[in-house]
């Protein structure tokens, strides 16, 4: 079976209204859903397409979410796990908005600090994690509380599960 044919059989129909997240690095689609706090139990129609051919990336993942137009602050968090992602907002089968995810200067409540004695890991304290972006490429974040630096792939691993 040619790769062209394989891609063809995986094609998912266009969505009427919602969000298409394209150019996700291969294998990262589930992490993108996690960053967005989507578990599947919300009842939204979601298509997750993984490891398909891409001219830009070699291989890529795509996520299509029917009925939910992502807000810019939600979209930006995607850049933590999928810096190459492009976001298309769809209305009546047409792309009405297209933009790239960009990590905000401050990342709050989305990434866990890996330092076990960071105050953000103390139980029963009303505290959210907060990181400041030190570098964007490659991504380096610093914990605002304990100063710990985290970078690259480590960031994706530290995304808090189902934070929404």
């Amino acid at each position: 079976m040619s790769s062209e044919h394989a891609e063809h059989t995986l094609k998912v129909t266009k969505i009427r209204s919602g969000t298409v997240i394209d150019h996700i690095p291969a294998g990262r689609a589930l992490e993108v859903l996690n960053v967005l706090g989507l578990t599947g139990r919300e009842g939204l129609r979601i298509a997750v397409i993984m490891n398909v051919e891409s001219r830009k990336l070699g291989r890529k993942d795509i996520v299509k979410i029917e009925g939910k137009k992502l807000k810019p602050e939600e979209v930006n968090m995607i850049a933590l796990v999928a810096p190459t992602a492009t976001i298309n907002i769809i209305d009546d089968f047409n792309v009405v908005q297209k933009f790239r995810a960009e990590v905000p200067d401050i990342v709050e409540g989305v990434v866990r600090c890996p330092n076990p004695t960071c105050i953000t890991n103390k139980s029963r304290e009303p505290i959210k994690t907060r990181f400041v972006v030190i570098k964007r490429s490659p991504l380096v974040l610093q914990c605002c509380y304990c100063g710990t630096l985290i970078q690259g792939d480590e960031v994706a691993k530290l995304v808090i599960k189902h934070h929404s």
Partner: peptide, 24 residues
């Protein structure tokens, strides 16, 4: 805990002086 003084400063209205927070 590292960051305890910073967290305390966010809660308190009065000034907080860090006299040592973990290893930080």
């Amino acid at each position: 805990f590292e960051g305890a003084a910073k967290f305390a400063a966010e809660i308190a209205d009065v000034p907080v002086v860090n006299a040592g927070d973990g290893k930080q």
